[in-house]
């Protein structure tokens, strides 16, 4: 178990290194930094800007800057945001929290709805409930978040209950159901499709397995069969999907947070790109990637815990087959 976690963390760190290096190179290639605007300022002399560059270390070669950044990160120092004029971590961490709150709400909402509907649909195969589930999945999967966001915004704008945007931390208006529900709903809908399909199909195939038939033959009640036996089998892919869907939720949050004015990482990334604030953007990328990888890791650990027999097997085959790719269908 520990060995697995260790190797996973190691892998994760490696992926993070590559991702951040890539982003760093890309942003450097994109040209321009936060001081470019100063350059255009007729009142600052060339030397003044260059001395500022020197102070912020922007005159060093790319590799040196990257290594410096890495060393800083290792020390818990993500650099200085040019746009906000404060340490990057003091901006990124509260926003990460906001996005995580949103993601957690959305995912639990989706899981709640999906497990009820999915279980019922699996049990009542071919019935109207099953068929309407089919329709729900189809529509939930083919409603893009950007479309849904505006539809929900239109409804929220007309009701006096919902508020748009999250008040800064420490305010009384912070993260009430009124502000969190609209964006969470939008993030949740594609997840409902994802989870519902997985739960229904997983449970259904589990129900047809031999041991379930045996359990039934033993005269156990149907609910016990489902909850104690079949669900365990159906849980594996669900756990994986749950862990991996975090990435999709984070990507989706860029648009959703922009539409709803939710003060999270997604909105922050748009600000960072627009102001060419590279340290801030790197902070956002790092936070996003770490959160996504952590989600994957947690999924792996849960999977491991749910399947004692997996411990005997090789690492590479831990993951069960998934019916769906959680990240791909909804890039936004």
């Amino acid at each position: 178990m520990l060995k697995l976690i260790f190797s996973r963390v190691l892998q994760g760190v490696f992926v993070l290194l590559i991702i951040t290096a890539l982003c760093f190179a890309l942003l450097a290639a994109a040209g321009g930094d936060a001081l470019t605007a100063l350059h255009d300022d007729p009142h600052l002399s060339e030397e003044a800007v260059n001395s500022l560059r020197h102070i912020y270390g922007l005159d060093k070669p790319l590799t040196v800057r990257y290594v410096r950044w890495l060393v800083g990160v290792a020390r818990g120092d993500l650099g200085h945001s040019f746009f906000y004029q404060v340490a990057v971590e003091s901006i990124v961490l509260p926003r990460l929290l906001n996005t995580l709150v949103l993601a957690a709400t959305a995912m639990s909402l989706a899981l709640f709805v999906a497990s009820i509907l999915g279980t019922l649909a699996a049990v009542r195969e071919g019935k109207w409930l099953d068929r309407s589930c089919e329709m729900i999945i189809l529509f939930a999967a083919s409603t893009p978040r950007i479309v849904l966001a505006f539809a929900v915004l239109a409804v929220a704008a007309r009701s006096s209950f919902f508020a748009i945007g999250v008040a800064p931390t420490g305010s009384t208006a912070n993260k009430t159901p009124a502000t969190i529900l609209p964006p969470a709903l939008v993030l949740a809908v594609p997840l409902v499709a994802l989870f519902l399909a997985q739960i229904r199909d997983g449970l259904r195939s589990a129900l047809s397995r031999e041991y379930v038939q045996v359990a039934r033959a033993k005269g156990l009640s149907e609910s016990v069969v489902i909850l104690r036996h079949a669900s365990r089998d159906a849980l594996n892919p669900l756990i994986t999907i749950f862990g991996y869907s975090l990435g999709g939720v984070f990507s989706g949050s860029v648009i959703v947070e922009t539409v709803f004015g939710w003060d999270g990482l997604g909105q922050l990334s748009v600000v960072a790109v627009r102001s060419r604030d590279i340290p801030l953007l790197m902070g956002v990328v790092l936070a996003t990637a770490t959160a996504v990888l952590a989600g994957n890791l947690i999924a792996d650990i849960l999977l491991f815990a749910n399947n004692p027999e997996l411990r005997q097997r090789r690492r590479g085959e831990v993951k069960p087959e998934l019916a769906v790719n959680p990240n791909f269908t909804q890039p936004l």
């Binding site: 089919e134 999945i137 189809l138 259904r204 993951k319 069960p320 019916a323 790719n325």
Partner: peptide, 23 residues
């Protein structure tokens, strides 16, 4: 491994090689 094959589906689809298409 599974995840690779899994990349080709939309949420309401089952895997191509689903062994037990019971329904």
């Amino acid at each position: 491994t599974g995840r690779y094959q899994a990349m080709n589906g939309s949420p309401y689809m089952k895997d191509v090689r689903d062994k037990q298409p019971s329904h």
